[in-house]
């Protein structure tokens, strides 16, 4: 009865915005409006700027300096690319570096995900004395610059005679405050207390609960953390160039050493950069969607 009276009024107020028709999916969170042409132009430009330097690496890797400076500049790579890649591999042990990077990044990833899941679960769901203070310590660690640790670490690995050994890179990098925090945030939301209680009533031991209930629930976040950790470890630069030399380098160390000759040949440097970056880029193109999803998911949780 009362609604009848207000109905015409409502129609009027709706009429204004409806004049510019939009499609909207009501139930979805967030604003969903179709993009205009300008949006596509701007996004296209951004995508171009994002990808172009990587493409340019391939072009520059196949040209001499003089060719690169020509007008108009070249925009397609040519067959010299492979020659230059060969030269780069001679000048720097890039093959070894890729193998090393795979080993180092894989170890760091497995270790970090494991430690982070264990600790993240404890911080999210277990009550123990001092858990708040310990978590604050973890979060605080994220603010500490890498620089603060490297001198003693260097002294340590020098004493252990680990310079140029891969464990010198792996072990210190396993400490990931971000990983612990990330898993904690995920598990405190995704793992209901009831599920743990159900497992207790079902008679599962704490360890059994962890493997049979917590890990399966945590798996999506573990995958995201693994991807991010691998990427970070692969690209890590500061500590590896201190702990390793070009005798047994990771990719980043090898790349840093590439330009060290007296007359730097840009094409060779670019060729080295290209093959050092290619493995990650291939993985990235294949798993891009998942990585994007993971970063966005992590952003909301964090």
């Amino acid at each position: 009865m009362t609604t009848l009276a207000s109905a015409p009024q409502e129609t009027v107020s709706v009429a204004g915005p409806v004049a510019t028709p939009r499609r909207r999916r009501g139930r979805r969170a967030g604003k969903v409006t179709a993009a205009g042409p300008l949006t596509y132009v701007l996004l296209g430009l951004t995508a171009l700027v994002s990808v172009f330097p990587l493409y340019w690496t391939a072009v520059a890797a196949s040209k001499t300096n003089a060719e690169l400076a020509g007008t108009p500049p070249p925009f397609l790579p040519d067959a010299d690319l492979f020659t230059n890649i060969g030269r780069a591999m001679e000048e720097a042990p890039i093959g070894l570096a890729i193998v090393n990077s795979v080993v180092v990044s894989s170890c760091i990833t497995v270790g970090t995900v494991l430690c982070s899941t264990l600790a993240g679960f404890a911080f999210a769901k277990l009550r123990f004395r001092g858990n708040g203070a310990l978590l604050a310590l973890v979060v605080g660690t994220m603010m500490v610059p890498t620089q603060l640790a490297i001198i003693p670490l260097f002294i340590l690995i020098a004493e252990l005679q680990w310079v140029d050994h891969l464990q010198a890179v792996v072990l210190p990098t396993l400490v990931s405050a971000f990983g612990v925090f990330f898993m904690r945030q995920f598990l405190s939301q995704a793992l209901p207390d009831e599920l743990l209680e159900a497992a207790r009533v079902d008679g599962a031991s704490t360890l059994r609960t962890f493997w049979s209930v917590v890990v399966p629930v945590a798996r999506p976040a573990m995958a995201v953390l693994a991807m991010l950790t691998f990427l970070t470890a692969w690209n890590d630069f500061f500590w590896p160039i201190i702990a390793l030399t070009t005798d047994n380098p990771t990719v980043q160390v090898a790349l840093a050493g590439l330009g060290g000759g007296y007359v730097p040949d840009t094409a060779v440097i670019m060729a080295g950069t290209l093959i050092g970056t290619l493995p990650v880029l291939v993985v990235f193109v294949v798993l891009g969607k998942q990585i994007v999803g993971g970063i966005m998911q992590g952003a909301v949780k964090g």
Partner: peptide, 15 residues
């Protein structure tokens, strides 16, 4: 667009 925009993030500092 999202993947393209994230490519630089996947590129190492050195490269």
């Amino acid at each position: 667009y999202r993947v393209a925009m994230l490519m630089p993030y996947a590129t190492s500092i050195a490269a």
